[in-house]
Design a protein around this nucleic acid. Structure first.
Lengths: 231, 231
DNA sequence: TGATGCCTATGCACGTTCTCATCAGCACAT
DNA sequence: ATGTGCTGATGAGAACGTGCATAGGCATCA
């Protein structure tokens, strides 16, 4: 069911860290910030938990039993772009560079400040998970999902319910081309097609979003459907 | 090495830094890594350059004349989600937290290692590109299947639906020779031949893909059919 | 009852698809 | 080489379909 995605769940964070006290410490702090957490103590378990849970973010130590942290990062990156924050005692520039180039998004050196870690977690989640801020951002478009507000380039735009749902679908999948069938299925469920609702609503959105001489947001892909692209 | 079709062009980086020697230094290093750069020395100019250029990433000092760096970050975030790396001498935890919570994606303290900065730039740029799952690359041709986009040598190519399907067939099987019957079967099913549609469409593709003096992509195998080969 | 939102229906404009006829060029035999 | 026959390339244009704007009907809500 499409509408379930507005259900605001707690962001899920996977911690892979073999020093048990540190793991416990981070775990508690994250829970206090209202995140859902899972802790594992070695690379292999970490990787399998990752695949099982598909968390919103991973905090990863480098010196791990069984499977090295860098390798964990690389394997995760093979199939996912979930943010990875490396948290380690290895503080040389070379190690930082290798860590980041292995697919990590951030690299924090122990001993670290928990406040900084939390701020970095927020920064990464903000980008990935609208649940955190309730916001989706694409190009110069900002959608506030809780408040059902839409801004383009700072100016507020009034949308009806359906218009908002349609735009939300596009905004959550920028760059993906949807055909009319997919769109109807998601925005107009319990609905037997046979009309051009989609076209009409795309028209409504364009009229409201694209002021005089403004960049086009929703592009037509003739013979296929529509995309939201920044261009 | 860019990991996405969108990065076929040089990524554009805006540097906002008032210490001229540092700015120059970063600028040169980034250019050596094949980025396009623009340098500004105060907050207001930085912001207006940002709006003018819409860069792929911003490197931002905090202590700036005219308009404070934090304020610049906040204003950028109002309308955009371009990655921002704060680069500053302010090294307290509080300042880091404030910086990250103001919308920055990363926070690096001076004196910094240029290698680390470059690695972080790479990490952020990598992440900005929407993970393009269905991406096919052959020679200097990039097809984004989700987005139904085609690029050759960085420049975007507009294809009609049928043209795209035909090219997709070739691109998924580079080096394989297809005869006309196979092609009709896959791209024109429910279709009883008797014409030279295939030839015509190959012609269309060639016209669009192969600019003046450019390498040939779709080769004719006389008496048999066509192949996509890099040569 | 007036305003707003949701959806259907219609007609026009234009891009796309495909056919057909003709032209170009390669391959092979002489 | 040269001609001959055949294959592939290309241009023109007809038929078709898609997308878009617009208008109107119906329901809901104030």
């Amino acid at each position: 069911m499409w509408h379930s995605y507005r259900m605001e769940r707690k962001p899920n964070i996977l911690i892979v860290e073999d020093e048990k006290e540190i793991a416990k410490f981070i775990d508690l702090e994250l829970q206090a910030e209202n995140y859902e957490t899972v802790v594992t103590f070695d690379g292999v378990t970490g990787l399998s938990k990752f695949r099982e849970l598909n968390p919103d973010l991973v905090i990863l130590d480098l010196m791990l039993p069984v499977l090295d942290g860098l390798e964990v990062a690389r394997r995760i990156r093979k199939t996912s772009n979930t943010p990875i924050i490396i948290l380690t005692a290895k503080d040389s520039v070379d190690e930082k560079v290798t860590g980041l180039d292995s697919g990590a998004d951030d690299y924090l050196v122990k001993p670290f400040s928990i406040e900084e870690l939390l701020a970095r977690v927020r920064a990464h989640l903000r980008r990935v998970n609208p649940a955190v801020t309730g916001e989706v951002r694409v190009a110069d478009l900002v959608m506030n999902l809780d408040g059902r507000e839409v801004f383009r380039d700072g100016r507020r735009i009034e949308l009806s319910a359906k218009e908002f749902e349609l735009l939300e679908l596009f905004a959550r999948n920028p760059g993906k081309v949807f055909n009319r069938f997919e769109i109807e299925e998601k925005v107009w469920p319990e609905y037997t097609g046979g009309s051009n609702v989609v076209d009409v609503y795309v028209g409504y959105l364009r009229r409201k979003l694209e002021g005089e001489g403004e960049r086009r947001l929703i592009h037509t892909v003739r013979g296929v459907g529509y995309v939201l692209r920044e261009e």
